[in-house]
C-alpha cells in the first residue's frame, strides 16, 4: 500500500519542454505509467522515450524501455484519450497556474505541480478555483510524489528510495532526499514520499498528508520536515495531538534564519509570532513528535519514534 500514487497511476505530463522531457524520461525508466502529454501546438504527435530501466529485478520488469507517449492538445482531450488520473506540471511559471486550473477543469483528481517561481497572485487565484472542484493539488515548487519502485512523479532521484514503512512529507526538496536516504540506509524505507513545496500558497498541506498516512495500513510512522514561515507546522501539531495514531518524527529548518529577511515586515504578524522555527519545534514536541536536532539525525529520530 501507499498513498496518492502507485503502480497503476496513469499520469499525463503538462509542459513537455526540456525539463519536462528530461524528468519524464527518468520517470518512465523508474516505471511510472506515463500515458500522455499536453502541448497545444503538437497535438497528434508523439514523444518517444528509450533507455535502460531502473530496479530491473523487481516484479519482472524488463531491462529497457521504448515508448511512444501521445501528445494531446488539451488536458481534457488527454484525459478522454488515456483515462489519466494524475497530471504533473512542468509548465513555466507564467503559465503554470493556468495549467493547474485546466487540469482541475478536466477533472484530473491529482495534480502535482513541480514548477518553481509561480507568482503568488496566480496561485491565490488557482487555489480559489480548486476550492469547488474535486482536484487535489500537490505543490507547486516541490520535488513531487514517489512510491518507491512503483511510481515516481517529479524530479527526485529515484534510486535513493526503497519500499518500506515510513511516510515522508516535506516542504523542502533536498531535505526530503536527506531523510529518504537515511531511511533507506537504516532499513525503514518509505511507503510514499510527498513534497508539498516551499511556496507560501500551496495545495496539499501537512495535515492532509498526515491524514493520508494515518489511514494507510502499510505506513507505520511518518516523518515531517518543515521550515520557517506560515503556520502549517503548528496546524499539523494540533492535528497530530488530536488524531494521529502513528508515531511521528520531525525536523524544522531555519533555527538560525534572520527574521524579516525573506518575508515582508508585516508578514510574520498574521501568525502572531508563530512563524519561527522555535515555535514550530515547541508545538510539534508538545504534540509528541520526536524532533531531530539536525538533518543528520532525521533517520535516527524516526527510529526512536517507532521504538525500533
Amino acid at each position: 500500500m501507499s498513498v496518492l500514487v502507485d503502480i497503476d497511476t496513469a499520469v499525463i505530463v503538462q509542459g513537455m519542454g526540456k525539463t519536462g522531457r528530461f524528468h519524464t524520461d527518468k520517470a518512465i525508466a523508474y516505471g511510472t505509467k506515463t500515458v500522455g502529454a499536453v502541448h497545444p501546438s503538437r497535438a497528434g504527435q508523439t514523444e518517444r522515450f528509450t533507455g535502460a530501466t531502473d530496479h530491473t529485478g523487481v516484479q519482472g520488469r524488463p531491462d529497457s524501455y521504448d515508448v511512444e507517449v501521445p501528445i494531446f492538445g488539451s488536458v481534457a482531450e488527454a484525459v478522454a484519450g488515456t483515462g489519466a488520473v494524475a497530471s504533473v506540471v512542468y509548465v513555466p511559471p507564467p503559465f503554470a497556474a493556468d495549467a493547474i486550473m485546466e487540469a482541475a477543469d478536466a477533472g484530473v483528481p491529482l495534480v502535482i505541480a513541480i514548477t518553481e517561481g509561480i507568482p503568488v497572485a496566480d496561485m491565490v487565484v488557482a487555489k480559489r478555483y480548486l476550492q469547488d472542484r474535486n482536484t487535489r493539488l500537490v505543490g507547486p515548487n516541490c520535488p513531487g510524489v514517489i512510491t518507491p519502485q512503483q511510481c515516481k512523479i517529479g524530479i527526485m532521484p529515484g534510486y535513493i528510495h526503497t519500499p518500506g514503512k515510513v511516510g515522508v512529507v516535506s516542504r523542502s526538496g533536498t531535505l526530503t532526499y536527506e531523510a529518504v536516504h537515511q531511511l533507506t540506509r537504516n532499513g525503514l524505507g518509505q511507503t510514499t514520499a510527498i513534497g508539498i513545496g516551499g511556496d507560501p500558497v500551496n495545495g496539499t498541506n501537512f495535515v492532509d498528508c498526515l491524514e493520508l498516512f494515518n489511514d494507510d495500513p502499510d505506513t507505520e510512522g511518518v516523518i515531517m520536515i518543515g521550515e520557517i514561515g506560515g503556520t502549517a507546522e503548528e496546524e499539523a501539531a494540533e492535528w497530530i495531538a488530536a488524531n494521529m495514531t502513528k508515531p511521528v518524527a520531525g525536523f524544522i529548518a531555519g533555527m538560525s534564519a534572520p527574521p524579516g529577511k525573506r518575508m515582508g515586515h508585516a508578514g510574520a504578524i498574521i501568525s502572531g509570532g508563530m512563524g519561527t522555527a522555535a515555535a514550530k519545534i515547541d508545538a510539534l514536541e508538545a504534540a509528541g513528535v520526536v524532533m531531530a536536532p539536525t538533518p543528520t539525525d532525521m533517520g535516527a529520530a524516526m527510529m526512536e519514534a517507532l521504538g525500533a
Partner: peptide, 9 residues
Amino acid sequence: AGLAMSTMD
C-alpha cells in the same frame, strides 16, 4: 533552500 537553511542551523 531547506538544506541551505539547515546547514546554517
